[in-house]
């Protein structure tokens, strides 16, 4: 991979090998290889540990919704509902967070007075420093009860949209609540990436827009957003990666159950990460192995999302 290919600098002009150089190159190369080893090791562990349960599974692992794995023989479990819940929660979180993050980033870079901008940027970064268990507490203790009347309103007025058909949960501990919490959690990374790319918009492009009579918003639309699009998408994908893997907050908010449901206002969905965290202490028989198989699926999803993000960011920076 690129990490190992990169250090092909020209040899020193004297042709003499300097010890410091060799040591440093070795250390750098070793660190690069270490990443590959760790990644391969984790993947190997997941596959090896998951294999017994997958081999013994009596139903289709990717298509089954039930989780009947805590038995000594003939386990029947599948990751369909979990994978669905994971992707759904993360996707909603992304939909909620991205516009807000772009708005914050634009405000910081182009609207706020310099002092306000730096304070605001710092505060957003601080959001990333809050432990996820605290987000979970906030979600379950504050946000969920607060959202109950909102959910009731949604079913009442927007109930014709299948997503909001209800009846609304009375506890507020629904996939939508979890998504809102996830949205807050991924806000910092999307904001930070967007802010960085918005700052890099060449002055020439911005002045070109202004010089032909663009207002500030028109300047942003003509020069900033097209230039920053790849950065925003990259940030969103990194945020998506984080939302997919987030465990603690989701595990605390969602009540454990397994179903594929598009109804955002009822408890019913669950995510892979939260399911593993909740089930692991009581797993017996094939249970642990089955949970590791679920982990393998999560690993594959996040890997795919992150590679997608890298690809988009790299392609975008080549264009610009």
């Amino acid at each position: 991979m690129t990490t190992t290919d990169a250090p092909q600098a020209a040899p020193p002009p004297t042709g003499k090998r300097r010890i410091g150089d060799a040591v440093f190159a070795g250390l750098a190369r070793g660190s690069g290889l270490l990443i590959l080893l760790i990644l391969a090791g984790v993947a190997a562990f997941l596959i090896i540990q998951a294999w017994p349960s997958l081999a013994a599974n009596t139903t289709g692992f990717l298509t089954t919704q039930e989780w009947d794995a805590n038995v000594r023989e003939n386990p029947a479990f599948g990751v369909a509902a979990l994978a669905f819940g994971t992707v759904l929660a993360a996707a909603i979180a992304l939909l909620l967070a991205t516009p807000v993050a772009v708005g914050i980033a634009l405000f910081i870079v182009y609207y706020a007075p310099r002092r306000v901008a730096s304070v605001l940027g710092y505060l957003v970064d601080l959001l990333a420093a809050i432990p996820s268990v605290v987000y979970g507490l906030w979600g379950i203790g504050f946000l969920a009860p607060q959202l109950v009347p909102v959910f009731r309103g949604l079913t009442e007025y927007l109930g014709w949209i299948p997503l909001f058909s209800g009846p609304a949960s009375t506890s507020g501990r629904t996939i939508l609540t979890a998504s809102v919490v996830l949205a807050v959690m991924i806000l910092p990374i999307i904001t930070a990436m967007s802010r960085d790319v918005f700052k890099q918009v060449p002055q020439g492009h911005r002045e070109a827009a202004l010089a032909m009579g663009a207002t500030r918003w028109e300047m942003i639309r003509l020069a900033v957003l097209p230039f920053g699009r790849s950065g925003v998408v990259g940030g969103a994908m990194l945020g998506l990666g984080r939302a997919l893997g987030e465990t603690m907050a989701v595990a605390m908010i969602l009540s454990p159950s397994l179903a594929i449901s598009f109804d955002l206002l009822q408890s019913g969905n669950q995510t892979i990460a939260a399911h593993i965290a909740l089930q692991y202490p009581e797993a017996t028989g094939y249970g642990v192995s089955a949970l590791i198989a679920a982990g393998l699926v999560l690993f594959a999803i996040t890997l795919a999302v992150n590679m997608g993000a890298r690809y988009i960011v790299a392609r975008g920076s080549k264009e610009a």
Binding site: P202, G204, H205, E207, A208, A209, L210, A211, M212, G213, A214, L222, A223, P226, F227, R229, E319, A320
Partner: peptide
């Protein structure tokens, strides 16, 4: 600025357009 247009030192067409 819509009455008084400007051309810059470095040509700056919008790259994505």
């Amino acid at each position: 600025r819509s009455e008084v247009g400007m051309v810059f030192q470095k040509a700056n067409p919008f790259p994505t357009m």
